[in-house]
Simulated assay, not measured.
Amino acid sequence: MDGFRLPLGEWVETGVNWLLNNLEWLFDFISTVIGALVDGLTGLLLDVPFPVTIVVLALVAWLLRSPLLAVGTAVSLLVIVSLDLWTPAMQTLALVLVATIVAILIAVPLGIWSARNDTVRAVLKPVLDFMQTMPAFVYLIPAILFFGIGVVPGMVATVIFALPPGVRLTELGIRGVDGETVEAGHAFGATPGQILRGIQLPLALPTIMAGVNQVIMLALSMAVIAGMAGADGLGKLVVEAISTVDIGQGVEAGLGIVLIAVFLDRVTAALASPSEYSLLGLIGRRRTARRRQAADQAAASAASAEEDALAAAAR
């Protein structure tokens, strides 16, 4: 087989050229929609005064996790402000949030479909393996060809790279639901849709939220690569620092990414089951205590009434 070479690269290039020539309208539509979403969210985050944003995010951290995380969130965001990185940090946050939402909207239905259909699972498994093992830089090549330079190719590459864990963990969560519980739903006459909404999704929620957490972390890990495609944000500052060997700027921008990652990681980890130290946990404990107190009072009243009735009967 001397001299033989599989022309895989030429085949891929031919396919990409065909897509560019025949689906340009679709790429323009996707570029317009994604650009509008990212720019709109970025504008919203930047239009709100930063003290208000810090307070809101700290309250979210307290609502779902703990007062300690709320304080840590406020301090972390103030550090970002003190480093004059607020604008690129909000640009990165907007990119990550939009990429995460798009990835989840694709991953969760695919995971559910894969969990309920073995053929779909067999087809998706090698595709997801390919998506996870392909170097992330490779996704930028067709993304830049299809969408040009800017935030859109960076976000498309981010979605592709971050998608597989969401699909896998959604499928794992649905398949991990106890079969007897599902059979009980069938026995009571529930439709497949009712079983999915009322039994499988609620029981699989912790695993699905673990997938959402992984999607967010992978999306943040793509911030620098998205910056190479021209996307504004902290990743772009890291790329500039690399090109100019500016260690100070690189460390500051990298620290900003780390602080955002810690906040998103802790908050998303608490979405499925809020901490007992969170505001939601405190409200839940108070409601439980009130219900228990009311039940105890009702039981005491019933016992007292029964004693009175017995005393009256004895007389």
Rank of each mutant, 00 (worst) to 15 (best):
G3M: 09
G3V: 11
G3Y: 08
F4K: 06
R5C: 01
R5P: 00
R5Y: 07
L6V: 10
L6A: 09
L6C: 03
P7F: 04
P7M: 06
P7W: 04
L8V: 15
L8I: 14
L8R: 05
L8F: 09
L8C: 02
G9N: 07
W11Y: 13
W11A: 09
W11C: 02
E13I: 09
T14W: 12
T14A: 15
T14E: 12
G15W: 11
G15A: 11
G15C: 06
V16S: 01
V16D: 00
V16C: 01
N17Q: 14
N17T: 11
N17S: 14
N17E: 15
W18Q: 06
L19T: 03
L19N: 02
L19D: 01
L19P: 00
L19F: 05
N21G: 15
N21T: 10
N22R: 15
N22W: 14
E24V: 08
E24C: 04
E24W: 12
W25D: 10
W25V: 12
L26W: 11
F27A: 06
F27L: 06
F27I: 03
F27K: 03
F29P: 00
I30N: 00
I30C: 04
I30M: 08
I30S: 03
S31H: 03
S31A: 10
S31T: 05
T32E: 05
V33H: 02
